[in-house]
């Protein structure tokens, strides 16, 4: 395999000093390949957002190194960071953070213009991207006229417009209902697959874990491989797989913290998980090929 899109080496982030010191992220190391979707889960306050901000060059680690496409981001001067964020990193935020004064098309084309594209080119590119995300009929709309799911897709288009190497999403489904949350996740997986992006998603939403190639568990600032962990789809508790109460449904295996949870699940499974495979999204065509860039296709990482 070629060089990973993202390499994180022994990254630690401390806030404050002395008695009030908080170690928000503790010696985290992580490689994310092109085309791979990594989901980082964990309880509130475990350091997920802090880690994501460091990956996005918005926050400097106290120690450790981060490489994006082989470039050591942590070694760059402050002056060079905006450009790095603009061209190599795509951000998707929990509350969308669209610009309220301009329409959907401008929301997506402005970052492209910032990156040096001429206005007309930027708009063409943004329109194509929005079209591909099923928003072709919303180009002239103001963000406030959109539904939550549509806003999130605009935010995704904005994150992709400069063809970043890595896409970072912090709780992208927190403000969405189950259906839109799932749609968003499938979209992110498609982006990773079709365009060879490294996608890192931070969430504590149990419903989306089956979309990731890899699920990591963060607790107390440190990452643990979640392969051995299972999340109880009923109560959301995280349990070690060996100790879990197991049930199979729809050809898939689920782990529960107790028999009570398992029985509840088996009574009405669809209340807790979505059927798999998810049907293709209506209205959204294939993503347009990224301009002048090789698509790195990745085999699905076995779970």
């Amino acid at each position: 395999m070629s060089q990973p899109g993202l390499q994180v080496q022994h990254v630690t982030k401390r806030f404050g000093a002395g008695d009030t010191e908080i170690v928000a992220v503790r010696d985290v190391s992580l490689d994310v390949a092109h085309g791979e979707v990594v989901l980082i889960m964990g309880p509130s306050g475990s350091g997920k957002s802090t880690l994501l901000l460091m990956l996005g060059a918005l926050l400097r680690p106290s120690t450790g190194e981060i490489h994006v496409n082989g470039v050591e981001v942590t070694g760059l001067s402050e002056r060079r960071l905006p450009d790095l964020r603009l061209r190599h990193i795509g951000f998707i935020f929990q509350d969308f953070n669209l610009l309220s004064a301009v329409d959907v098309l401008d929301n997506v084309s402005i970052p492209a213009q910032l990156a040096g594209a001429r206005r007309r080119d930027a708009r063409t590119r943004a329109a194509a991207l929005l079209q591909a995300l099923g928003l072709g009929h919303r180009l002239g709309f103001a963000p406030e006229q959109l539904s939550g799911g549509e806003k999130q897709r605009v935010a995704i288009a904005r994150a992709l417009v400069n063809e970043p190497d890595i896409v970072l999403a912090d709780e992208p489904t927190a403000n969405l209902d189950a259906r839109h949350g799932h749609e968003t996740m499938r979209l992110l997986r498609r982006i990773a697959r079709e365009r060879g992006r490294s996608v890192i998603i931070v969430s504590h939403d149990q419903r989306i874990r089956d979309i990731a190639d890899r699920v990591l568990w963060m607790e107390d600032g440190a990452l643990r491989d979640a392969v051995a962990m299972a999340a109880d789809p009923v109560c959301g508790m995280s349990i070690e797989q060996e100790k879990a109460v197991i049930a199979t449904w729809d050809g898939r295996t689920f782990g529960f913290c107790s028999r009570g949870c398992r029985d509840e699940f088996l009574e009405q499974p669809l209340q807790f998980v979505l059927p798999d495979p998810a049907p293709p999204e209506a209205g959204a065509g294939p993503l347009p090929p990224p301009g002048g860039r090789e698509i790195v296709s990745q085999p699905a990482v076995p779970r």
Partner: peptide, 18 residues
């Protein structure tokens, strides 16, 4: 009133000068 949006633009990579 728009401070948050300016912060978002900064996060996306807009420079202070702009």
């Amino acid at each position: 009133a728009r401070r948050r949006e300016y912060g978002v633009l900064k996060a996306l990579g807009m420079r202070n000068g702009r």
